[in-house]
Design a protein around this nucleic acid. Structure first.
Length: 423
RNA sequence: AGAGGGGUGGCCGAGUGGUCUAAGGCGCACGCCUGGAAAGCGUGUAUACUCCAAAAGGGUAUCGAGGGUUCGAAUCCCUUCCCCUCUGCCA
């Protein structure tokens, strides 16, 4: 959520920045400014009345104590007018504040200066490409055929137990999943990220904290009986650890990593391009989260990009990095880099990681602050990224590492799998 | 799930309608003292919104959360969440 004071003081700048999202924010921004004006005005009025009313009550208290009941009764008669007026004003204040919040929820984050202009994914800017695209042998298969051939992932079984999009991993497939999770977590903790195990169901406040609510309500599974949401990413529980927290400046940066399954309803987003592992309702992901000093957050973002690059280099997968254009960025992000692995058998790029700086957008909702040396509080910057999302990495490995003899396991994973080929 | 007890500042803890502007302690910061430190003494120590061009300094709200009673609520009433103890169930 953008900061009201910032919008008030930088109206044109905000509108211009949001224009990069191909979004005319003028009406919403002006609504924010008008509501904020009304809120402040109402608050001044209300505070004045409450102040006078408090004084009067104190006087009554002193008179009662002194035994001057008649005088006290006289003063009591004057309180009626305050009461009515203050009730009226506090109702106006409450509805105005609520209306303001609702408008603020509709405003996405302002893109950073270097975010390219553009509307569609085609206008994302490729900033890096690395790794050799292998030449596959005659008869090479896409991963949805490979998993059947080697009997390592069973979609039909998942349909039986749950429904489409809930695969069952079997045998070496299951072991490979576990290996990837362990490998990613080890790499992350080696890089200084602190490992967490977090709840997979979160409350409404957490959903609002990281911005999934109210923007993406329909994307999350919701347990009505207990009013809990299944997490769409571990970003939600991990970042919410720091909701309503004031950190000391020397506690920054906070670096966290967690493995969780992720649950996404993906309502209405199924089609021909989402076969196999390309899109699922439940998938595994290892996430990295950072809380940074505003001065350092973009350097931290670069560090996270380097870290993810390193994972893909070690896995020897051909990949590229895109700087997302304004039209393709997520609601809460100020700058996002997407990592894509080339799926040779599908002849297309698959997104496997998204690394973003949210600046103060999440921190403002989370009330996540840090105290500087002068004792003043400021909103921190939050960042996160996948390192990595498993299904498409798996798809990339299966397709790019296939040989007529079977699927070769990348070397760095062998200590974790205990086998070097799936056949 | 049932019965009982309880949620107060960074922490412990007092407070059952009116100097609560929340006692006292611990912690922390600064100062005095000291050769240096400890002890001791003194001062300060929340968050949000807001007024003032800014600073200084004010105002309002916040004692788990929300609502109510009252001129006035940490304190009384209602709703709700959470924690503890016992019982039950259970990996």
């Amino acid at each position: 959520m953008l900061q009201t004071a910032f919008i008030r003081e930088n109206r044109d700048k905000v509108i211009q920045a949001l224009g990069k999202r191909n979004f005319d924010a003028t009406p919403l921004v002006d609504e924010v400014i008008a509501l904020d004006e009304k809120r402040r005005h109402t608050q001044v009025e209300l505070d004045t009345i409450l102040s006078e009313s408090n004084k009067l009550s104190k006087d009554i208290g002193e008179l009662m104590k002194a035994g001057e009941k008649a005088k006290a009764t006289l003063l009591k008669e004057r309180t009626g007018q305050f009461k009515e007026k203050s009730k009226e004003l506090s109702e106006i204040l409450a509805t105005t504040t609520e209306a303001l919040t609702q408008v603020l929820y509709k405003l996405p984050n302002t893109p950073a200066d270097i975010v390219p202009v553009g509307k569609t994914p085609e206008e994302n800017v490729e900033i890096h490409r690395e790794g050799d695209i292998p030449t596959l042998f005659e008869g090479a298969l896409p991963h949805w055929d490979l998993i059947k051939k080697y009997d390592i992932i069973d979609f039909e079984l998942g349909v039986k137990i749950s429904g489409p999009g809930f695969p069952v991993y079997k045998g070496k497939g299951a072991k490979l999943q576990r290996a990837l999770i362990a490998y990613f977590l080890d790499k992350n903790t080696d890089a200084g990220y602190n490992e967490y195990q977090v709840p997979h169901l979160v409350n409404e406040a957490s959903g609002y904290g990281t911005g999934q609510l109210p923007d993406k309500e329909g994307q999350m599974y919701h347990d009505a009986a207990d009013d809990l949401y299944l997490i769409p990413t571990s970003e939600v529980p991990v970042t919410n650890i720091f909701r309503d927290v004031i950190l000391a400046e020397n506690e920054l940066p906070v670096m966290a990593t967690a493995y969780t399954p992720c649950f996404r309803r993906e309502a209405g987003s199924w089609g021909a391009s989402v076969r196999g592992l390309n899109r699922l309702h439940q998938f595994d992901k290892v996430e990295i989260v950072r809380i940074e000093h505003p001065d350092n957050s973009y350097a931290a973002l670069d560090g996270m990009v380097e870290h993810v690059k390193n994972l893909l280099q070690e896995l020897k997968l051909p990949y590229r990095i895109l700087r997302l254009c304004g039209g393709d960025m997520g609601f809460t992000s100020a700058l996002t880099y997407d990592f894509e692995v080339f799926s040779t058998a599908q002849d297309r790029w698959l997104e496997i990681s998204s690394v973003s700086n949210f600046e103060t957008f999440q921190a403002n909702r989370l009330k996540l602050r840090f105290r500087d040396k002068e004792g003043k509080n400021h909103l921190a910057h939050t960042l996160n990224g996948s390192s990595l999302a498993l299904p498409r990495v798996l798809a990339g490995i299966l397709e790019n590492y296939q040989t007529p003899e079977g699927i070769v396991i990348p070397e760095v994973l062998r200590p974790y799998t205990g086998f070097d080929i799936i056949n």
